[in-house]
Amino acid sequence: MGKKKQKTTSIGWVVALLLVAFSAAAGVTYYMSRGVGKPIVPNQSKPAVVKPHNVQPTPKREVAIYLPEVVHGAFYLVPSTRTTALEGDILDVAMKVLLDTTGESGEAGKLIPKGTELLSTVKVNKGVAVVNLSKEFTDNFSGGSTQESLVLNSIAYTLVDNSNGKVKKVQILVEGNAVETLGGHFELTDPMEPDSALLKPDK
């Protein structure tokens, strides 16, 4: 009788342990399946290949630069499309093309102070393009407020136009440093927005 009772008790404990083990496993499985509360999203899958069927290497590219024009004694900026074989970021190319206009005939050739160079690539951060120019930019500028306005707005418009909407404002540095002014009329300490009043109006 005593033996029988002992056997029954052992089976009961085995059943109890099995139940506990099963319950614990179910709990662990459930919590693991919950993850961290975010679904799996695919990693940046390998970039799909661009298949430009009739595309060839770029031999030339076009940039729009903004140059001054005098109409009945009033000054305006007008876009001018230039073709170039220069390579690199479009904003660097546009700036280089604009700086290269020095010496061209007419009002346009006298816009950019002689010898001005782009010292580093144009960087864009939160819509502000930072342009680092050589000291000739300020050293060789000798215009009045009209000329200063045209130079600054020409740079701003050129960068805004070629940026596909990425550039809204322009910060000009000289030799890597912020400067107070180009010619003693307008402050360059803050990023500037191009001024629409200078664009030649449509007829």
Binding site: P68, V70, G73, F75, G106, E107, A108, G109, K110, L111, S142, G143, G144, S145, T146, Q147, L150, H185
Partner: peptide, 18 residues
């Protein structure tokens, strides 16, 4: 008090007040 100047000689003349 300022005097003005632009890129091309003799292309603009006169007084502006801002």
């Amino acid at each position: 008090i300022h005097c003005n100047s632009n890129g091309t000689k003799n292309s603009a003349s006169g007084i502006e007040t801002y």
